[in-house]
Structures are given as C-alpha cells and as structure tokens.
C-alpha cells in the first residue's frame, strides 16, 4: 500500500482527493509520501485519528516532520499488516477488566516484523510509534527492546544502548550488596 510518489503523482493525488477517500497520505521529514488506509490509521494511531476527525489531514501529504521515511515506511507497513492479519478480538489491547493485564504479548507476525529491523530502525520506529500515539506498535517495539536487555548485565546493556556509566565503582558495589538477591545468577 505504501507508495513513494513523485511530485507529479502527488499532484494527481491532490486532484482526486475527496473527503470520503479511504486512504490518507503521510509525508515524512525527508519529503517522501506514503499512503495508508484511513480506517487503519484512525484505529491504530490516536494522533492520526484526531487529525482525521479534526479535518487537519492534508491530501497533498500530511507533514510528519519528526518521522523519517524509513520509520514512516515501517509504520505504514505495520498498519497494513495489522489490517490484514488481525482478528478484531486481538485489537482490544486496552482491556478495561481490572484483573486482566492490558499488555498482550506480541503475536508471531509482530515478532517477525520487529525482528527484521536493524537496531537503528527499531529505535526510530519506537519514536515514531510514540509520536503518533500508536499504543500497540509501541507495545511491540518496546517489548522487543526489553527482550534485548533480557539476561544482560548492566555493562552489556550500556554497550547495546550506548550509555555512559556515571556510577562510581563504590556506588555500584554498594547497590549490588544491598540488592544481592538480584544478582544470584551472575
């Protein structure tokens, strides 16, 4: 469904644009255009739903200046895959039942979707999902990142996430002793 349109084609899109068309066109920070089903966009993104409801969708391509083309392509790809493969029951990710965990483990296709992403692409996609208010995509991408930390020591996590250690050796040792139970399997 995603289309990287040239300018002429975008002009064509503008001509045929009607309020009742069933897709919306999104423009990445680097000017590339992507088309996505209006229904999927409204269902999966609170921000896009608000823009559609408020009539602030630009038929020439709604500017999403915070999102690069690679991340936006992945967002659109996710929306399309979601629309194609998910039964309606699985969409209820924000259960209101008190004792039911609202977080639903990623489905097989969602795992595959994030597994193929590079480290950079995954991080960019998390930011895009957060910006667009895509709760489910945020769940899936954040879950993937949390899985990347599984079984890793603080040193290894720092390495993967490029974080500088600002603790002193003594502080680390003190915390390790205080919370020794968390390090039995070291």
């Amino acid at each position: 469904m995603e289309v990287d349109k040239g300018k002429g084609e975008a002009e064509e899109t503008r001509k045929v644009a009607e309020a009742d068309r069933d897709t919306v066109t999104l423009k990445s920070s680097d000017g590339k255009l992507f088309e996505v089903s209006k229904e999927a966009a409204a269902r999966l993104s609170t921000v896009l739903a608000g823009m559609i409801a408020g009539g602030s969708i630009d038929d020439n391509g709604t500017d999403l200046k915070q999102i690069g083309s690679e991340a936006l392509e992945n967002v659109v790809d996710y929306c399309n895959k979601h629309a194609n493969s998910i039964p309606s029951a699985a969409l209820i990710s924000s259960s209101i039942s008190f004792n039911t965990a609202p977080f639903k483990e990623p489905e097989e296709w969602e795992r595959k979707f994030v597994d193929r992403l590079s480290h950079d692409a995954l991080f960019d996609l998390v930011e895009a999902a957060n910006f667009l208010g895509m709760e489910r995509l945020l769940d899936v991408t954040c879950h993937k990142i949390s899985e990347m930390m599984k079984g890793k020591s603080p040193d290894q996590i720092r390495e993967v996430f490029n974080i500088k250690n600002d603790y002193t050796k003594e502080e680390l040792e003190e915390i390790r002793q205080e919370l020794a139970w968390a390090f039995y399997d070291d």
């Binding site: 930390m149 603080p154 720092r158 250690n165 600002d166 603790y167 968390a182």
Partner: peptide, 10 residues
C-alpha cells in the same frame, strides 16, 4: 531482578 539490573545502568 531485571529492573534492578536496569537501575544499575546509569
């Protein structure tokens, strides 16, 4: 324990 490990990152 995973949250404890994360707290020791920075």
């Amino acid at each position: 324990a995973r949250l404890v490990h994360a707290a020791l990152v920075c």
